[in-house]
């Protein structure tokens, strides 16, 4: 058999024998970033539709989680940096060719905006809330007045945030699994699905729950389509991409991916939500928990498997 044996003398930390420069921090951030993007998108979209009364969970309650998620995500990103004290260098540069630079600046817009959005609703959600100082009440009135402007900015930036979590990875041509433009839409869809799931778990209103169950069903359908497309694309590509796809089609990520991400994270919750819409009594927490689990697993598996995929010598 024609073979090639490669012996390398290199043994650099986190690079050899297999790349492991990114760990749980990045996967966790991609999850919470996607979830926050989903929450903020639905909040601003339905606010702009004037559905404030009909969908209180989507517009007022659920987005309160977004600043918390983004803060946790930023914390994880900070932990991931090796040269931590220099993190501010991200904000002395705008590098158009670097997705990470785009992401850093997007977060710079979205994070404060999500805090202001939540603050402008906080007295409606918690009636006993007291701002303590008069100037805070004045500020609140100011932001309530400009909610519409905030919603317009947020509806765009939440989509950028959701897509960027995938594009961050797809910009690396050295890692064939990541190097596909499907990853952006896939992560956006998955973030929106997580956002819809959280809204379903928050709502007490039948109309809102039904709507977001339907939205979730459609998004899961899109996600399944994108997953199939991802593998079709990889399998129809060059040797390194085929090898990357094989990590999921018989390789070591096959079981975790197809069982936890696709079956338990997409198909089962979709069936449960469908049955629920048909009038079956199903505790809403089950599909919601499954969707969030599938979301986390998708991020972890893609981040880890991507680093296992590489160019051959």
């Amino acid at each position: 058999m024609e073979e090639e044996i490669i012996i390398s003398g290199r043994m650099n930390y986190k690079v050899d024998p297999g790349l492991h420069i990114w760990g749980w921090e990045i996967a966790f951030y991609l999850f919470v970033g996607g979830l926050a993007a989903g929450l903020l998108f639905f909040a601003s979209y339905y606010y702009l539709q004037g559905k404030e009364k009909e969908f209180p969970a989507a517009i007022k309650w659920a987005p309160m989680l977004a600043p918390v998620m983004l803060a946790l995500g930023l914390g994880a990103l900070f932990l991931d940096l090796h040269h931590k004290l220099y993190f501010w260098r991200l904000y002395t540069n705008i590098r158009l060719t670097s997705p990470m630079s785009w992401g850093a600046w997007t977060l710079m817009v979205v994070t404060p905006l999500s805090i202001l959005w939540s603050a402008s609703w906080v007295r409606e959600v918690f009636p006993n809330w007291d701002w303590k100082f008069k100037f805070l009440y004045d500020l609140e009135a100011f932001f309530i007045k400009y909610r519409k402007v905030m919603a317009w900015i947020m509806v765009f930036y939440s989509v950028i945030l959701g897509i960027y979590t995938g594009i961050l990875l797809s910009a690396f041509n050295a890692r064939p699994l990541w190097n596909t433009s499907i990853l952006g839409p896939l992560f956006l869809a998955s973030g929106l699905s997580a956002g819809a799931a959280v809204i379903i778990s928050f709502t007490k209103n039948e109309l809102e729950r039904k709507l977001f169950s339907k939205i979730d069903l459609v998004i899961i359908g899109i996600e399944l389509f994108l997953v199939i497309h991802l593998f079709m694309g990889l399998m129809a590509s060059t040797a390194v991409q085929i090898e990357a796809a094989e990590l999921f089609l018989g390789g070591k990520y096959t079981l975790p991916f197809w069982i936890f991400v696709v079956f338990l994270g997409m198909i089962v919750p979709a069936i449960l939500e469908f049955l629920e819409l048909r009038g079956q009594k199903i505790p809403v927490i089950i599909p919601v928990a499954l969707i969030l689990m599938g979301n986390i697993m998708l991020r972890f598996i893609i981040v880890y498997a991507g680093q296992a995929s590489r160019y051959l010598y």
Binding site: I21, W22, H83
Partner: peptide
Amino acid sequence: PDECIGCGACIASCPYDARYPHPDGYV
């Protein structure tokens, strides 16, 4: 080194794996 935040993007982007995180933090 003084501009590097050690995010690892360049390490992930190198098909030759020619870079590594220096123990002092920078790449």
